[in-house]
Simulated scan of single mutants.
Amino acid sequence: MTTVTTRTVEYPADGLTMVGHLALPAGTGLRPAVLVGPEGMGLGDVERRRAEALAELGYVALAFDLHGGRYLGDPEEMLARCLPLLDDPDRMREIGGAALDALCAEPRTDPDRIAAVGYGTGGAIGLELGRAGVGLRAIGTVNATTTGRPGE
């Protein structure tokens, strides 16, 4: 098992201060990187562990935030925030783009080798980055929530 270093990364998005979880692999050189998008409730332990598992495999990984450091365990509160977000592609792109900028600000991130994976709302944000033409090498989702726009 390789040594993984983690730290909190704060960055602005959607009028909030987002609080992401950055996981770095051992070593010092440039590494491919992965954005890890959370389900609608927000960044939790599952996404933090996924970022750390990716770092163990040699990737720089950022599990990004959706709600300004909050985890929305109440389904009604989560839906009240996420449904309008999912209906606003520009807003999703802004949140995803800010997370991508935070990932690219890490000196070990190879900007030419970045992928995104995500669950639910975080997966939809990854897909929206792809629709926007962001230079991601791959996008993987689990239960990505979409709004039914043409081509989805």
Rank of each mutant, 00 (worst) to 15 (best):
M1T: 12
T3C: 11
T3I: 11
T6A: 13
V9C: 07
E10P: 10
P12A: 09
M18T: 08
G20H: 06
L22P: 06
L22N: 06
A23R: 10
A23G: 09
P25C: 14
P25K: 10
A26W: 08
G29M: 09
G37A: 06
P38S: 12
G40M: 14
E52L: 06
E52K: 10
A53F: 11
L54F: 12
E56W: 07
E56P: 11
A61N: 05
L62A: 05
A63W: 04
F64W: 12
D65L: 02
L66A: 04
H67Y: 06
G68T: 07
R70P: 04
G73T: 08
D74G: 07
P75W: 05
M78A: 15
A80V: 10
A80Y: 08
C82E: 15
C82L: 13
L83H: 14
D88C: 07
D90Q: 14
R91L: 08
M92F: 04
M92R: 06
M92Q: 14
I95C: 04
G96A: 05
G97E: 04
A98N: 05
A99H: 04
L100R: 04
D101W: 06
L103M: 02
C104P: 09
A105G: 08
T109W: 02
T109H: 02
P111A: 02
P111M: 00
P111Q: 03
D112W: 08
R113I: 02
V117G: 02
G118K: 00
Y119W: 09
G120I: 01
T121C: 03
G123T: 00
I125S: 00
G130Y: 00
G130H: 00
R131S: 03
I139E: 00
V142S: 11
T145C: 11
T146A: 05
R149K: 07
E152Y: 06
